[in-house]
Design a protein around this nucleic acid. Structure first.
Lengths: 400, 400
DNA sequence: CTATTAAGTCAATTCGCTTGACTTAATTAG
DNA sequence: CTAATTAAGTCAAGCGAATTGACTTAATAG
């Protein structure tokens, strides 16, 4: 299915687009502000009371919002606040990592309703997909036992895995060549009957921070994710940015200097993969995370020497991100145990002077995001929810 | 003027927003495709023939489009193509450089209708503004002598100057502290009665490339601008991105390595300022550009040694941009004479391997943009035109 | 007790896109 | 040469979603 005509043009819109947008901004407003009355919504969205009333009535019938008790707040008729109904919608999130897969179901506001995990063959996607489909079936069943209408309210499946995608020869040890070349989206769509979207793990992490974490309601934020590799999830103008080919934010491949012996990718010196190497650990080892956590808490000298070096490189990376994106805040997230992430964060201070050093700042230049190992799966699940409910330009336009 | 209520929400929309969007996509479609019939437009925008007919009729009455001769192209009634009327709208562009200012008037399709330039005091904005207002008056007069309705069709004034803006202490020799702290937008708005928008010079350069240059119709492009300083103009999702505080893209301040003696800003080694220093030239010197052009054509060894070093650093910068933004193309622009820009471009090849090394590419990884010294002023002028006529999310929403 | 203020509804209106039938004007087939 | 076919474009009625302005409801201030 591709363009018949070579004419380049954006799609038009009509009242359906208008209506869709207005519904979405209501939902977003309730998500960002907790609970609002119709009058509040009318003021905030610049729509008339009447329009808001109609839309809210609609949303209530669809089971997406619910009225709370009326509140008296001065003169005039008391207002009736509305809030989102968490089980108004669900989505499934799937994280594919090197030797592990996680599946979660989240609701409209980001609560995890069910979860499952399993090992995964690094280089056999076809058998791996079977395992994944099994997990998805399991959590779907769990959800169905909790909510009768769950299937009807399932908006999609979001997949997160390490990027980059679509390269010539992703055949080095930092990547997952077999999985990156497998037609995963198609296989999962066929196997589940759901809409499937794919993004890289840092993007999922940023989405998670946006929906329930440190970037909640922030329009310009960059989420620096230190996992086996390193990448950044970009929230620009309130939306996730993924570039011309879906590979934006792969900062792990950024070279630390223009030339010479120091010209090595950031990933080779500051990722967890580099830490494993530094410590002589096997990444597939069981209880690796616990072990790292213990070492971090004990401030093991070999860990500390890696932290020093990595922090110096990551400090540079934060400077780079600030210089290039001018975000309101940078969020450091990691699949490492929290103790280690805190050591890193600490060692990154003081930050390098940059344009982010402004006279007044509402948000810190760098803050710690979640280190919950399930965050990426949650972010993956948040993507279809965002696609279905968040206001965005494309939601106004006709067709696809 | 700021929020009374602390409620965070996007603005709603209604039929006016719908209509505004549909008008804008028509104009964009005509800009990108040259001339299209109503039927073409209906297919391309997914609107009905009737809707398109009404909108085109409107635009024709507003003097923005005009019918061409009917063309027969097979069976069926011949179609009547429409094209944009260049003098349907005008905007003024202002470039403020260290010791120089340029003013242009451009029309709806980017033709320059009038131009003027003058010297500018580096550290006396208040007297400088008088000079600028004089130039603006002059070009405005010229335009009025060409088109009777010109004032009514003037959509705004775009200003471009070196960033970054709004910093704590922009008091180093790379910046223009006095101008960057002066309330320029207010002064110009008061002095001209026009809407005034401000952006940095790289952003203006990118806008120019987008409207009439190498980025025409490209949705993901980065324009690397090598001027007195260095910066990048970012076109993401078809729109200029300017970050949380309008300072996105200041890559000139990116550090060439995490730490140590090599940790110097890109700008210090690859900007024209660094070239002037390298050659012992005075940047305020008359006929500087001609002199540089001559040296470049002669492949002067001192110029070549700078080119070698700068190209090595810029090659790294392109790699960084590709890694972080995943754009469809990177455009190299410069205020240097074309011969020098070509030397730079040549010396930057071969490029570093990156994720931009894809099996199929429609556009080159790196291409030379314009080196017209007026390009930045043109880009500055293109901004208000884009704001008034290009489809964008914010144009659909109510109010400001 | 009355005036004032604010939330929210009702009913009519408006505005721009859609629908479906129709007109116009060309090419192709017989 | 004529009839069928195809495509561009118009006409007029319809529809859907927000708007408008008057009205109702329910609280507080004085």
């Amino acid at each position: 299915m591709h363009d018949i005509s070579p004419i380049r043009a954006k799609s038009g819109t009509n009242q359906e687009g208008t209506s869709a947008h207005n519904r979405r901004i209501m939902i977003e407003a309730l998500r960002l502000n907790g609970a609002l009355s119709r009058a509040d919504l009318a003021r905030a969205t610049q729509l008339t009371k009447q329009a808001v009333s109609n839309i809210i009535e609609d949303l209530e019938q669809d089971g997406l919002v619910v009225a709370l008790d009326a509140v008296r707040k001065g003169r005039g008729q008391p207002s009736t606040p509305y809030r989102l109904v968490p089980d108004g919608a669900f989505a499934i999130g799937l994280q594919i990592d090197r030797h592990l897969t996680r599946v979660v179901v989240v609701d409209l506001v980001g609560n995890v309703m069910a979860r499952a995990e399993a090992g995964l063959p690094f280089d056999e996607p076809s058998s791996g997909v079977e395992i994944i489909l099994g997990l998805i079936d399991r959590v779907r069943g769990e959800l169905a036992s909790l909510f009768a209408q769950s299937e009807r309210r399932l908006v999609g499946l979001g997949v997160a895995m390490p990027g980059p995608f679509g390269l010539k020869s992703p055949d080095n040890k930092w990547m997952m060549p077999a999985w990156q070349q497998f037609p995963l989206v198609e296989a999962l769509a066929a196997g589940t009957g759901l809409n499937v979207g794919l993004q890289n793990d840092a993007a999922a992490c940023a989405t998670a921070e946006r929906i329930v974490g440190a970037a909640h309601g922030v329009d310009h934020a960059v989420c620096l994710y230190v996992g086996y590799g390193i990448a950044a999830g970009l929230i620009l103008n309130g939306e996730l940015y993924s570039g011309g080919n879906g590979n934006a934010g792969e900062v792990g491949m950024a070279l630390l200097s223009p030339a010479g012996p120091g010209s090595t990718p950031l990933e080779h010196r500051a990722s967890l993969a580099s830490l494993y190497q530094h410590l002589g650990l096997d990444p597939t080892e069981r209880r690796l995370c616990e072990k790292l956590g213990t070492l971090a808490l004990a401030q093991d000298p070999r860990v500390m020497s890696w932290v020093e070096r990595a922090a110096s490189d990551l400090r540079w990376c934060v400077h780079l991100i600030e210089t290039i994106f001018d975000p309101q805040t940078v969020i450091l997230t990691s699949s490492a145990p929290e103790a280690l992430a805190r050591l890193l964060l600490q060692a990154m201070h003081p930050l390098l002077p940059s344009i982010a050093d402004r006279p007044v700042r509402r948000l810190p230049r760098l803050q710690l995001g979640t280190t919950d190992p399930w965050a990426i799966a949650v972010g993956a699940a948040a993507e279809p929810i965002s696609r279905a409910f968040d206001p965005r330009f494309s939601a106004i336009l006709k067709a696809g």
